[in-house]
Write a protein that binds this DNA or RNA. Structure first.
Lengths: 345, 345
DNA sequence: CTGAAAGCGCTTACAG
DNA sequence: CTGAAAGCGCTTACAG
């Protein structure tokens, strides 16, 4: 039924070894012979069985990717970036999701033990990093993406959180706002601390200072943004801007401001973080610090492939250091909730 | 290094055949022997190599999934639904994306020829259905999801588009609106024709009729919704509601209405289709006809696994006919852009 | 430059 | 109930 290397060998009048050589361009093969073999391969439409190749070589030309639910747009973007890069290298991407909790991890672990793929891309598992660490120790190449908590033991891809905070601050300073409300994510995340630090430092450098009472810890959800603004408003805290640590909480802030009759950006300018697709559709559209999610997914894949020894087709892009930690730049996306001008640093 | 079935056999003092038997619960094995073998397996942490098993059995316990870009939220939802179901069955999901166009298809075709997976889930490829058909003919089990154009030759999963149109019409009738603007998707899609037909028919059944001049063909993008509303408004066409064939164009309609100073829902009620996550965040939140995307992804996976003979763990859910075409029900999601009451059909 | 043979790690008749 | 052997479809030393 299926045409095998033996069929090709027979039809071409050579041994399987020779067919294998022309297939993999390995070792010397006579020009005519090679051509003849290639002819037969074409005529028979022969494609090596990936299973057999995998078994013989001990590699599967497949990488795994573990991600939280794809329902989160930023996760989907990361995965898309990874898929593209992996595919371009002629690899396959086996997708795993944490959506079923502990059982998902068990399934993943089983596939790891079964050697189903050559390396694993991991999108910040908040829990279960122990399981991932175990896989890593057992010899599986692993690359982390956007680790909210830094794991020194792993190669990883992140983004410039501190710079992102600075970019937000610069924009607000440029707008003449000096009393911002900051709605952070959970403090236990490194990215949160970095965003806050970059923001506060820049404010201070420009003589604006920052009142810690105007910093509220949120949970990255829409609700926390809404509540923070509503509460501060009720307390009579004066603020002329909001810097939210992600777009969802920025959206909550927008909602609360609208409910309170405050105009955005006239009364209060608002800046988010992430640049999820939603950000372009809020009212007003959200100015935000963009994380290059696709590029991050792609960079992580490139890093992993390099480690696996896959030799990415075009090598790593020039702007990605070939180190253990790739950090891609954030970028301020200019929209109506906090329109320019930019104060150049 | 890696522990193999031979290691287990040796340590347990039996043959590889016996280990294989207890592994797969196939054939008779003495109780004590089996227990001893299981012990050793546990102690050694043995897990069969998926590559070797795959080669020996001619199956990979992996399914492929071809989808357009994950950047579209509805695609991400479908994939998530499929991942969950596939994983629950102990299978892996190899993800392919059309994002690189023709080359993506070539890569996919190569993997198909290489027998990298046992079956393929396909999310409506607008072009390239020829390629998919070819794979199907060559013996690969294929299940289509949400086929915008019906392909009689394939098992598929779709949604009740006609009913969805009726649901939208009922809601508008319940609100006393009788002069709706309909912004469709591209007419070449079956789903578009069905949504329109269900909608118009219901209007007519309730004596409302429908003026074809108030039907505008859109492209499923935000822009087309915005432009349609702006144009009809400029032409002075009177309408008291909008039924958009997807949420994005409904969002465009909302924008245009706001720009024109029309109040939603007081002046114009708006209903979308899909229920993407965005829909809950528009201003006002969007009433929409929900497609059960996760369930569709899951149903498609179940259908495919059944075909592969994987015997899904819990069988097909009761409400999914075990036929060649699964059609899941749409559902009206009640939000502020077209609030109840519902006119019961 | 080319081929015969062993090996990758399992499964599956076939004997017993 | 159990084992020896062949086979899945490749790759890779090893000879020549």
């Amino acid at each position: 039924m299926r045409v095998t290397i033996a069929d090709v060998a027979r039809a071409a009048g050579v041994s399987k070894s020779t067919v294998s050589r022309v297939l993999n361009a390995k070792g010397e093969v006579d020009g005519r012979t090679a051509e003849r073999v290639r002819d037969v391969i074409g005529r028979l439409g022969y494609v090596p069985s990936s299973r057999a190749v995998g078994l013989a070589r001990g590699r599967s030309r497949t990488v795994g990717m573990l991600a939280p639910s794809l329902a989160w747009p930023w996760v989907a973007e990361l995965v898309q970036g990874a898929v593209d890069a992996v595919e371009a290298a002629g690899y396959g991407l086996l997708l795993f999701t944490c959506s079923r909790g502990r059982e998902s991890m068990t399934r993943l672990a089983a596939q790891v033990s079964a050697n189903a793929f050559d390396g694993l891309l991991v999108v910040e598992p908040e829990t279960e990093t122990g399981a991932v660490a175990a896989m890593h120790r057992s010899g599986l190449p692993v690359v982390l993406i956007d680790d909210r908590v830094r794991h020194p033991g792993f190669p990883s891809v992140a983004t410039t959180n501190t710079l992102g905070g600075r970019q937000a601050a610069h924009r607000l300073l440029g707008l003449g706002r000096s009393r911002p409300l900051v709605i952070t994510g959970p403090r236990r995340f490194d990215c949160v601390r970095e965003r806050l630090e970059g923001f506060v430092r820049t404010m201070e450098e420009h003589g604006a200072g920052h009142d810690p009472r105007r910093t509220v810890e949120g949970g990255f959800g829409e609700r926390s943004g809404e509540e923070a603004v509503a509460r501060l408003l009720a307390e009579g805290a004066g603020f002329d801007a909001v810097f939210a640590h992600n777009d969802l909480s920025a959206m909550g802030a927008l909602r609360a401001l609208r409910a309170a009759g405050r105009r955005v950006p006239d009364d209060v300018a608002v800046i988010g973080f992430d640049d999820i697709p939603l950000a372009a559709y809020t009212d007003p559209p959200l100015t935000t610090v963009r994380q290059p999610l696709r590029a991050m997914g792609g960079a992580a894949a490139a890093l992993l492939l390099a480690r696996i020894g896959a030799g990415p087709p075009d090598g790593l892009p020039d702007d990605i250091p070939d180190g253990d930690r790739v950090v891609l730049p954030t970028e301020l996306v200019d929209r109506a909730s906090a329109p320019g001008p930019v104060l150049t640093p």
